[in-house]
């Protein structure tokens, strides 16, 4: 393999990893703080995709469509936390399962009602078309865009979690909610915010995905599977673990896809098999 080709595959792998990171980080964040497995995460991803593409066209403005759609998906999950999750904390986990599965049916059917059940191709805006030359090889602008989006989101999350008081509260709350409350902090408000952020990230992941795969009412279910594999590989409850797992998945898919194209579709399961074989709790999972 030439070094140009290697760099090219590496960049593709990273942009894939970034999409996986966007898709799974919201689920991981919500799970690590609230201990709620939000199975409707895939459906939120799908809503981010449909709503984003729709609003970009409605506003004839890419950035505005993107921002408004992800903020709305965030608000949806914040409302779900405020009115529904909150009643279930500390109770039987089965109720959470039923609730978030119920949300899947509602959200998925709503997509079909509004946009129909057919696949919808997505047109890239002009500035995302074409390629740029990187290290002597053509590279799709869209992938470059995704990469930079991922870098910005990562940096934003890092600053939020490490450099703000809200971030300290989230980190502390993941470990010990009772002590956080004993310091006079209303952690329920932080739960609502984290759900907003989780929805925001799901929407963003879905939006980015739409420009690669187009829109399909099945994408929620298939992305949920992807997300679950990533958070399990990363270690349930570990936000950092999920981020690392997402990048590894991207690398594996791109490189396995290059050498053994017929195995590409299985790449995430191959990674899962290897990681869980060595460390059953996942990369950064506890115990």
């Amino acid at each position: 393999m030439t070094s140009q080709l290697f760099v090219n595959i590496l960049l593709s792998a990273l942009s894939l990893g970034v999409i996986y990171f966007l898709l799974s980080s919201g689920f991981a964040l919500v799970f690590s703080l609230l201990r709620v497995s939000n199975f409707s995460h895939g459906s939120l991803i799908m809503w981010g995709a449909y709503l984003g593409v729709y609003l970009v066209e409605a506003f004839s403005n890419f950035t505005l469509g993107l921002v408004v759609s992800v903020v709305i998906v965030g608000f949806f999950l914040a409302l779900v936390e405020y009115f529904l999750f909150r009643r279930l904390y500390g109770g039987n986990p089965l109720f959470e399962l039923l609730l978030t599965f119920g949300l899947i049916f509602i959200l998925d059917e709503a997509v079909k009602l509004v946009w129909g059940a057919a696949l919808i191709p997505v047109n890239k805006p002009d500035f995302l078309k074409g390629t740029v030359m990187i290290y002597g090889e053509p590279f799709a602008v869209l992938r470059l865009y995704i990469l930079s989006l991922g870098v910005v989101v990562c940096a934003g999350l890092y600053l939020l979690l490490k450099k703000t008081k809200l971030g300290l509260i989230i980190t502390a709350g993941i470990e010990n909610k009772e002590m956080v409350r004993a310091l006079g902090i209303n952690i329920n408000k932080v739960f609502t915010f984290v759900c907003w952020l989780g929805g925001f990230l799901a929407g963003l992941g879905g939006f980015a995905l739409a420009y690669f795969t187009g829109l399909s009412p099945e994408m929620g279910a298939s992305q949920l599977l992807n997300v679950l594999v990533i958070v399990v590989v990363g270690g349930l409850g570990s936000f950092m673990g999920a981020a690392i797992a997402a990048v590894i998945m991207g690398l594996a898919e791109a490189f396995i896809g290059f050498y053994l194209p017929e195995m590409a579709i299985l790449s995430s399961f191959i990674v899962m098999f290897i990681v869980l074989g060595i460390k059953p709790s996942g990369l950064l999972g506890e115990v």
Binding site: L168, T171, A172, E175, A182
Partner: peptide, 9 residues
């Protein structure tokens, strides 16, 4: 009683 110093902070 358990001190509850946050370990990741």
């Amino acid at each position: 009683e358990g001190r509850d110093v946050f370990s990741d902070l």
